[in-house]
């Protein structure tokens, strides 16, 4: 436990020094705020964009608050997911390549607490960023668009956070397996996109973690509440534990690049 706390403090310091604690939450907050603002001013933006024939009128039905929240989750799922993967991709592989991990494991330290600290810092970064962005989107939606159903929005946020946790775990797992940063980002983003795309043509009882973003959007929008969320959530947590175990083992057998 003491070792874990030490490693965790080290990771915290490093994330602070590379400004990740600043720009990742900030980008999520901006993504969250932009969506309601852009939706609200769509008519004004179209009007002033210029190249429209005179006298042409466009009527856009104002979307409901829940719809805008669902669109925000869509933003998080494209730009947000990419930012997240890019910001944590070298968390394990970077130290292996620069020789830092070799120095650390010259002393008898526990591999599990090393990997656990990596996981803990990843989960805290993801959680802080998402909560900040979602809260910003919620506040702006209520201010500019309309009311948001509290219970459904909270449940959607919880399920969506699980999905982000899953993608983060996948990235760290890849980071423990591969050396090239571009390869890690490519494989983890590709796998995440494939999984969430597969949710459209896989049967619901397959319980893939890729269902989670779709289920959370449905919680916000659909009148009939979706099913299969519990199964997908449990499988997602199991996948995260599995990734963690293999990554800890990889840290043990591959201390350095040479």
């Amino acid at each position: 436990m003491r070792q874990f706390l030490l490693f965790f403090r080290k990771e915290m310091l490093e994330m602070g020094r590379s400004f990740k604690w600043l720009w990742v939450p900030l980008v999520f907050l901006m993504l969250g705020i932009m969506q309601p603002v852009v939706t609200r001013f769509m008519p004004v933006i179209l009007e002033s964009s210029g190249n429209m024939p005179k006298g042409m009128t466009i009527t856009i039905d104002p979307p409901s608050g829940m719809e805008v929240m669902a669109q925000t989750l869509g933003q998080f799922n494209s730009v947000g997911l990419m930012i997240l993967v890019l910001s944590i991709m070298t968390l394990i592989s970077g130290e292996r390549q620069s020789g830092v991990s070799q120095m650390i494991f010259a002393k008898p330290v526990s591999y599990l607490s090393y990997a656990a600290a990596k996981w803990a810092i990843m989960l805290s970064l993801v959680t802080a960023s998402f909560v900040l962005g979602y809260a910003g989107a919620w506040y702006y939606t209520v201010q500019m668009i309309g009311s948001v159903e509290t219970a459904a929005a909270l449940k959607a946020a919880l399920l969506y956070m699980l999905w982000l946790w899953f993608t983060g775990s996948l990235t760290l797992f890849m980071s423990s397996l591969m050396n090239s940063a571009a390869g890690i980002a490519f494989v983890s983003l590709g796998a995440a996109i494939l999984l969430s795309m597969a949710s459209t043509w896989l049967p619901r009882y397959a319980y893939s973690p890729g269902f989670l973003p779709e289920i959370s959007v449905q919680w916000l929008q659909a009148s009939e509440k979706p099913t299969g969320d519990l199964g997908a959530a449990i499988l997602c947590l199991m996948c995260m534990i599995f990734f963690f175990m293999i990554a800890a083992y990889q840290v043990k057998i591959r201390k350095s690049n040479v």
Partner: peptide
Amino acid sequence: INSSIPWSLIMPIIVLQLILAVV
């Protein structure tokens, strides 16, 4: 256009962008 925009709600976006650029 100017009068229809609630500047108090738009300002935070500009401020956030400035912070990011300055850092």
